[in-house]
Amino acid sequence: MVEAYYDLCIRYAPDDDASRDKFTSLVKYFGFIGAGITEVADKGNTPCRNLNIPNFDLVHGIEIREDNPSKLHSQASRYARKANFLIVQGGEDKLNRSAIETADVDILSLPLGIKEGGFDHVIAKSAADRGIALEFDVGSLIRYRGGKRVHAISELGQRLMLARKYEVHMILTSAARSIYDMRGPRELVALANLFGMTKEEAIKSMTATPVTILKRKRKSSNYIMDGVELIEEEICTEKQEEFC
C-alpha cells in the first residue's frame, strides 16, 4: 500500500539548511511525499521562501491567530497569496463563524478545551459548504498524559462525530513542534484509531484531502485571474508554420 501521504500542519520551522535537510530526510524516511510547514502569521516574518527540494513536496502555510473576528478578513487577504495554504486558529463562537466565512481559508484549527465555542453543528455545516477542512491534531495525544489526554480523546471523538455527519473534510496531522514530534503515517492512523477514526478515513485525510487543498491553491504559471488563463502559445505558432 503506497499512498501519497502528506503531513500539512507541521508547526516546526527549520532554521538553517542543516536542520532542514535533517527534517526532510526524516519525513521522507517515514514515507511522506510532502509536508507543509506552518508558521504563525506575523508582520515581521517573510513567508515567501525558496522551498525547492528534489523528490519532495515541501509546501508552506500560514496560520492566522487573531482574536478579533473583524480583523480576520484583512489578515487572510494579506497572507493568502504569500503561502500555499491558509490555516485559521479558531476559538470562541464569533471567531469561528468569521473564520468560516472568510475567503481563502483552507483549514480550520481549533485548540482543545474551549469553554465558549469550539466545534459545533453550525460551524460543521458551513465548513462543509465552504469546503474548509478541519484539522485533527493527534500531537495532543502524544504530548499529554493523564486527564488532559482523556479530555483530548473525547473532544476529538466529538468533533469526528460532527465531521462525519456533515461530511466536513478532515486533515490528520501530527502538528509537530520539533523534529522528535514527527510520526510516520501508519502511526498517525493508529493514533487516530484511538478516538474512533477508521483507517480509511485517516488515510483519506492524509492523502486525498491535502492534495485537493494544494491543487486548489496551486495555480499554473499561465493563471491570470479567476476564469482567465493563458492558453499555450506554442501550439498557435506551430499551426501558423503549417499554413506557411
Binding site: L141, Y180, R186, E187, L191, N193
Partner: peptide
C-alpha cells in the same frame, strides 16, 4: 494497532 499507537506516544 493499539500497541502501535502506544509506541507512538513515547516522546523520550
Amino acid at each position: 494497532e493499539k500497541s502501535r499507537a502506544a509506541l507512538a506516544t513515547i516522546t523520550s
